[in-house]
Simulated scan of single mutants.
Amino acid sequence: MLVPFTSLLALASLVVAAPLEKRSKVLASGNGMKSGAISKTLSWQSSGKLIQGGCPSTVKISSCYQVLLNSAGNLASRSLSDDSIFADSDDSHHQTTLSDAYYAETSPFLAPAEIGGPEYEEMTVEVEDSSALVKRASARQRIEMYSMPLAASGSTWTFTWKSYLSTGTSTSGTFFHLFQLLRRDGNGGYILSLGAVNGKAVVQDSIRGCSSCASIPISSFTGKTVSHTLKVKFGSSGTLSYKAVDSASKKTLLSYSAKGQMGSSASLKAGAYRAVTSGMSAVKAYVGDFAFKKS
């Protein structure tokens, strides 16, 4: 039986109009620590459930990732060792040694880069971590997207991304990083972080010893899409400026700037990374629209 041409057109229009946010791919299931790469400039590590796509349209993050942690389990009791380029960081500081071979290998990608375009999903690679993992001393959960290549001393980078943390997410007095600017230049640890701590969204600067550089009640930060802009000149005489803006109202929620030591061999890590505490809630968050530019 022949199908009327007008019916075919109607069907085609339905296919074209299908919302992109309904397409999704599970990168990590939450059954163990895994890591992988989305592209040459964006990688990930996850002990919880990490899903590429499928975010609610109300979140308004175009290239979006679902960040899902249970109230128990999803433990990152093992993660990549400190001498790898994927070394982790928490409330303690780690030392990392990077070989000249790594810089030689990545040097072609040091030109300004933005994440996006049709190759964004096609380059997705999942990597199972096994013998490379080492045991960590304390219980924590983590899902983080992070920038590559590492930022060298003297270079200036602008990192932009969006995030959404669901209302009702619990906080405590222990660390819960929503993003970290992580250095791996021999001193280790984060340069700057945004934490969900003791009922507040808090900007913390570990180099300048500022545990609450700027803060707002966590209720003023959750339940909304937040646009982040972080511009950093790395090195011993560096500069840093950070701003978090409510994407809908354009109201500035948090801002911070600093001068001095900014470290090197650094990258941005965004998602949810927290210590395991009694009575903590599950985490449902969204991150995406990452862009990293070297100037």
Results as ranks from 00 to 15, higher is better:
2 L>H: 12
3 V>W: 08
4 P>H: 09
7 S>N: 11
8 L>V: 11
9 L>A: 12
10 A>L: 11
10 A>H: 09
21 E>N: 15
24 S>V: 00
24 S>Q: 13
29 S>Q: 14
31 N>V: 06
32 G>E: 09
32 G>S: 08
33 M>W: 08
34 K>I: 04
38 I>L: 15
38 I>G: 00
40 K>N: 15
42 L>Q: 02
43 S>T: 11
51 I>Q: 06
54 G>C: 06
55 C>R: 01
56 P>T: 07
57 S>N: 11
58 T>E: 14
62 S>F: 09
66 Q>F: 03
69 L>S: 03
69 L>G: 01
77 S>K: 12
78 R>M: 10
81 S>V: 01
83 D>V: 07
85 I>E: 12
86 F>W: 14
90 D>W: 02
90 D>C: 05
91 D>K: 03
92 S>R: 13
96 T>V: 07
96 T>P: 02
102 Y>A: 03
105 E>S: 15
114 E>S: 13
114 E>N: 12
118 P>C: 10
121 E>Y: 14
121 E>R: 12
123 M>N: 15
124 T>S: 10
127 V>L: 14
128 E>C: 04
129 D>F: 03
132 A>E: 11
132 A>Y: 04
133 L>M: 10
134 V>K: 12
134 V>W: 04
134 V>T: 12
135 K>D: 12
135 K>T: 14
138 S>T: 15
138 S>H: 11
141 Q>L: 05
142 R>G: 01
143 I>C: 00
143 I>L: 08
145 M>P: 00
145 M>Q: 09
148 M>Q: 13
153 S>N: 13
153 S>M: 08
154 G>N: 09
159 F>M: 13
163 S>L: 11
164 Y>V: 10
168 G>D: 11
171 T>I: 10
171 T>H: 05
173 G>S: 15
174 T>Y: 13
185 D>Q: 05
187 N>I: 07
193 S>N: 07
194 L>V: 07
198 N>L: 03
198 N>P: 00
203 V>K: 00
205 D>T: 01
207 I>E: 07
208 R>L: 14
209 G>N: 08
219 S>G: 06
221 F>N: 00
224 K>Q: 13
224 K>E: 01
224 K>G: 01
228 H>T: 12
231 K>G: 03
231 K>P: 00
233 K>N: 10
233 K>T: 15
233 K>P: 00
236 S>K: 10
237 S>A: 13
239 T>P: 03
240 L>W: 05
243 K>A: 10
247 S>A: 15
249 S>V: 02
251 K>G: 02
252 T>P: 05
253 L>K: 02
256 Y>T: 04
257 S>C: 07
258 A>Y: 06
260 G>D: 04
261 Q>F: 15
266 A>Q: 02
269 K>T: 01
275 A>G: 07
278 S>E: 13
281 S>H: 05
286 Y>E: 02
286 Y>I: 07
287 V>K: 00
291 A>L: 04
292 F>W: 09
292 F>H: 04
